[in-house]
């Protein structure tokens, strides 16, 4: 990077911020100087204009275009449902769909169980704050960074070379042969899933922890007086008390898992039977030039996310009514 490059970058940022302030300043100025007749509507229009315009042009219209694209081939000709037929018949595409199902079943369940267990076990313990920070930290770093961290754990050295990946070293310690983890299907998909669990557990833990603290102490003490053991107290008092939060945790992690892209991209690039929908969508649309297939995959992704979101919203609404 030369000084001129750096200068060019700084100019871009400063100019963009200046231009943006200017536009917003102008809009606010116009809001105050709007014509007297129908003033409220002018003001309204100016407040909403930037957001509505961007969403219309940048999200709603493209979403419709994608829906159309899903029914055309790479040169833009209408092919009907061919892309969807491809998705549900080609072995490679079927592997992608199957993997996505495995991801979305395993990740939310394990993350939530581990997160909840951890939250319960460290609740009110000494140093709770630090315990939380340790498990929550992966949430702050990028999926790409997490991918590198775990690739290092899974690293493989051939022959008599000393292993530098922890997982293979453990195998060596117990006397087994080291494995080329990321190249070995189907175990590699589960190893990628571990990375996602590693990231999402912190999220589950933080929400569960907050929910556990919201369970009234009186209820737990009453159960204690009745002579229940900790497990009974957990299943009969704590669990019903945090049900709503658990639903939110599971649905949120499910949605994030359906869209997982970076982990697969960084660790295997979807090779060795590890691809998932979001990764395949990128590969088809932006690497293979098959925009139609990419669009079709995006539509399927949307259709998979939709019921989870609807369920989530319904649960939230019920909770609000109860309150």
């Amino acid at each position: 990077m030369t000084t001129a490059d750096l200068l060019g970058k700084i100019i871009q940022v400063v100019a963009a911020l200046a231009a943006f302030s200017l536009v917003i300043g102008l809009v606010l100025f116009l809001i105050d100087k709007a014509p007297k007749r129908g003033r409220d509507y002018w003001q309204l229009a100016f407040f909403l204009l930037p957001a509505v315009l961007l969403l219309l042009v940048g999200l709603i219209y493209p979403a419709f275009r994608t829906s159309l694209l899903a029914f055309s081939n790479s040169s833009g000709e209408w092919v009907g449902g061919e892309n969807f037929v491809w998705m549900f018949t080609q072995p490679a595409a079927l592997v992608t769909l199957g993997n996505t199902v495995i991801w979305v079943v395993v990740v939310p369940i394990l993350s939530t169980i581990i997160g909840l267990t951890y939250a319960l076990f460290i609740d009110k313990s000494r140093g709770e704050k630090y315990f939380k920070a340790l498990v929550f930290m992966p949430m702050a770093i990028s999926f790409v960074g997490a991918g590198i961290i775990w690739r290092f754990v899974y690293d493989y050295k051939s022959g008599d070379n000393a292993q530098i990946g922890l997982l293979n070293q453990i195998l060596v310690w117990v006397g087994a042969e080291p494995v080329q983890w990321l190249q070995t299907s189907p175990i590699n998909t589960f190893l990628l899933i571990i990375v996602m669990i590693w990231i999402q557990t912190g999220f589950a833990m933080v929400i569960c922890s907050a929910a556990i603290k919201g369970v009234p102490t009186e209820q737990i003490e009453a159960a204690q007086l009745d002579g229940t053991n900790p497990w009974q107290r957990f299943t009969n008092v704590t669990l019903p008390g945090i049900r709503g939060s658990l639903v939110v945790v599971i649905t949120t992690i499910s949605i994030a898992t359906l869209k997982v892209f970076d982990i697969v991209r960084t660790m295997t690039a979807g090779n060795f039977n590890t691809s998932v929908i979001a990764n395949e969508m990128y590969t088809q649309a932006f690497r293979a030039g098959e925009q139609g297939r990419g669009a079709a995959l995006a539509i399927v992704l949307f259709l998979l996310v939709l019921p989870i979101v609807i369920y989530n919203v319904r649960i939230l609404r019920q909770q609000r009514e109860i309150r």
């Binding site: 940048g58 219209y61 994608t66 869209k259 979001a278 995006a298 992704l301 996310v305």
Partner: peptide, 22 residues
């Protein structure tokens, strides 16, 4: 109605907009 529409846009995965936007 407009607010609900914008709220609902949250469920559109960004994958759905990428190709035309580019």
């Amino acid at each position: 109605a407009l607010f609900v529409l914008i709220f609902a846009l949250q469920i559109v995965p960004l994958q759905l907009a990428l190709i035309p936007l580019l």
